[in-house]
Design a protein around this nucleic acid. Structure first.
Lengths: 129, 129
DNA sequence: TTTGGTTCGATAATGATTTTCAGTAAGGAG
DNA sequence: CTCCTTACTGAAAATCATTATCGAACCAAA
């Protein structure tokens, strides 16, 4: 059966991502790892990130510019508060909201509801706007 | 001064989009218009849709597959409940939620908060899951 | 109909992500 | 420890949606 192998590349990507406090694109991550002296391919970074998303270790977020950004995340269900200047991200939950949205969807005849909730703003470290 | 002109192409795009009950991609829309006998360029469809989004006539939504989809929308602030099978979309508001998210963001030191909220599910016309 | 702009649209360019495919290396078996 | 099997790697080519180019078409008006 198909099983995953552990390689230094995957470990490196996981570590690099873990050092971030916000979402990063695969390209950015790759560029910085190469700049830092680690020699790995862009393809590999994409693969490592995809694996992490599948295993639930990370969250992916596709922005309106079409670029997908990644971030290490907790396992529990949560949402994000993202600084659109520096990318800093805070996880949060919304008590009661889950139920409200589900009820609303059901009232319109929708089943198997899931949702996407993201808040954007400028964090306290990034002045002005 | 630079003013917009009304052309049959723009009108055609607006009408075609108006006939839909859900989000459609520029490519889909273009393909179907061409198939229906209307001869216009893909570039033009993109431009028309972009204009409509800027003027507030339509909403754009970039999916996780990187494709942007469009839909005619009401002017007031609202969110979407989208069928991920047929694409049917329902607009809705979330009383009280706006304030709650803003307060939450502010409590984390974030300013100029905006949000993205979309609900996905399977509508009553699309059985199974 | 000439003028001065705006819009069209075929095509080339862009840019992120994926696929290809031959060479590399985990890691279990012996 | 050594040998295999097979997942993994990565450079380069292929995709794909979207954007930029730029000459032709078009419109209103002088």
């Amino acid at each position: 059966m198909t099983q995953k192998r552990s390689t230094w590349q995957k470990v490196a990507v996981r570590e690099e991502l873990g050092e971030r406090t916000g979402f990063v694109s695969a390209q950015q991550l790759h560029a910085e790892m190469v700049a830092a002296g680690q020699k790995l391919g862009l393809t590999t970074v994409y693969r490592a990130l995809t694996d992490m998303v599948e295993s639930g270790e990370a969250d992916a977020l596709t922005g309106s510019d079409g670029e997908t950004r990644y971030r290490i995340c907790g396992l529990e269900h949560h949402h994000h508060l993202i600084c659109n200047v520096c990318g800093k991200t805070v996880e949060f939950e919304l008590p009661g909201f889950e139920a409200a949205t589900k009820a609303l969807a059901l009232s319109h005849g929708f089943q198997e509801v899931s949702h996407s909730i993201e808040l954007f703003g400028t964090c306290s470290d990034c002045p002005r706007g």
